[in-house]
């Protein structure tokens, strides 16, 4: 077992533990903070798997931007965690059934995978230069589409956020 493997297992345990904590917290702030830890772990894992640029993006975008956005929203929306209702038992059972089926399928697929997938993967790194070159060489159109998507998301968010306010203002003006 190489040192990489040790790191992998440690990071994997960290990610799973943090995510597990995140999904079970009653307070959403706690959940988001746990998830930040999980995303940091993911970033480390990316780095370990030879993807330094996605690792950095993971930290900047996921752990930084998205999670902070979550924090803002969580703080904006005040909900008493003690007052939330629980689902009926049947719902939990059904969810457990489906998740169990997925889990069994995943384990079975892992066990049944071919010999090549059982070989330890060789370590390799795609330098940010290579990665960027590859990306803009092959996927320039997709990049443009992604940028468009982000623009649309931006406008949509603005619309959703402003629409109500605008109407309220109009109402107020009417009064």
């Amino acid at each position: 077992m190489t040192i990489y493997a040790v790191f992998f297992y440690i990071i994997a345990a960290l990610i799973i533990a943090a995510t597990g904590l995140a999904i079970t917290r009653k307070h959403m702030v706690h959940a988001v903070l746990c998830l930040v830890v999980s995303f940091f772990g993911t970033a480390l894992l990316f780095y370990l798997l030879g993807a330094p640029l996605p690792a950095i993006f993971q930290v900047i975008i996921y752990a930084g931007a998205i999670m902070v956005l979550f924090l803002f929203i969580v703080m904006m929306i005040r909900i008493d965690p003690e007052k939330t209702h629980r689902f009926p038992l049947g719902h939990y059972l059904a969810a457990g059934g489906i998740c169990g089926a997925y889990f069994v399928a995943a384990v079975l697929l892992t066990l049944l995978s071919g010999p090549r997938a059982r070989q330890p993967m060789p370590a390799a790194t795609a330098s940010p230069f290579d990665f960027g070159y590859y990306l803009f060489d092959r996927h320039w159109l997709s990049i443009e589409m992604i940028s468009l998507l982000l623009l649309v998301a931006l406008i949509g968010t603005l619309h959703l956020g402003l629409g109500r306010v605008g109407r309220k203002q109009k109402k107020g003006g009417g009064q």
């Binding site: 190489t2 992998f8 297992y9 990610i15 997925y102 892992t110 997938a117 330890p120 993967m121 370590a123």
Partner: peptide
């Protein structure tokens, strides 16, 4: 040499499940 790909897959699967 890192871990086999199946382990990564398993990690991804467990995360997805969570």
């Amino acid at each position: 040499m890192i871990v086999p790909y199946t382990h990564v897959m398993l990690l991804g699967g467990v995360l997805f499940l969570l």
